[in-house]
Computed example of a mutant assay.
Amino acid sequence: MFVCTGNIARSASAQYLAAAMLEDGSTWTFNSAGTGAMVGAGVARHIDIELAQRGAQYDQHLAKQITERLVRESALVLVMEKEHLDWIVHEWPQYRSKVHLLCQMARVQKQAGKRVDPVAFMMQYDEEPLAQDEVADPYLRGPEAAKVAVQRIQEALDIVVPWLGN
C-alpha cells in the first residue's frame, strides 16, 4: 500500500504506475490511502496528465483514508514522507516494521541484492530514512511539481516493482 497525505497525487500515482508495471499473472495488488485523505476525490489536476502520459489507468480512483485494517492487511506500507511514517507509527506502532519510504526502499535495494526477499528484508530494515528519500508534495504547485513528483515515484517503482517479482 502506498500512502501520502490526501491520496490524490503521490500515493495514487504510485498505485496506478505500479499496477501498470505488473506482468500478467502477478500475485501482487497495489492500494493507496492518505493520512488526511480527500475522501472520494479523484486524482489531482496535473497528476492526471502525468499518469496518462505514462499509460496508467487511474480514472476510477477515489481517495480514501488510511485505516488500521488497510495497514494490517498490507505486506508493506510505502509512504512518501517521513511525516507519513511517523503518523502511521503513532496510530499503530505494532506495524512499524512494515512502514518505509518508497524511495528509501528503492535506495536500499542495492544493499539487499535482487535475490533477497524484499518484504522480509524491509520488515527487518530499521534505519531512519534520509531527507533524499522523500517525495515532495506537488498538490496545488503546478504542472512542473507534478512532473517532478511522478518522475521520482516512477524511478523508485522501476527498482521496487521488479524486486517484488511476481
Rank of each mutant, 00 (worst) to 15 (best):
R141G: 03
V99Y: 13
L78D: 05
Q151Y: 05
Y125S: 07
V79Q: 09
D126Y: 13
G142M: 08
P143Y: 10
Q109G: 07
A120F: 13
P118C: 08
Q104A: 06
P129Y: 09
V135Y: 09
P138E: 15
V119A: 05
D158C: 04
Q124P: 01
V116S: 14
W87F: 11
H100S: 04
H90N: 13
V119M: 10
L102W: 08
Q104M: 15
P162L: 12
V161Y: 00
V148T: 06
K82C: 14
Q151D: 15
Q151W: 05
Q124D: 14
V108G: 05
I153R: 00
Q132A: 15
I153C: 07
K114D: 15
D126W: 14
V99K: 02
V99G: 03
K147N: 13
L164T: 01
V116P: 06
V79S: 13
V148N: 12
Q111K: 14
V119T: 03
A149L: 07
L157V: 01
M122Y: 09
Q94K: 11
V79P: 09
S74E: 05
A120Y: 10
Q94W: 10
Q132C: 11
G113P: 14
M105N: 00
S97M: 10
L101W: 09
E81A: 08
H90K: 10
M122T: 04
D137P: 09
Q132F: 12
V161P: 05
V161C: 02
L102C: 13
V108C: 15
D158I: 00
A120V: 10
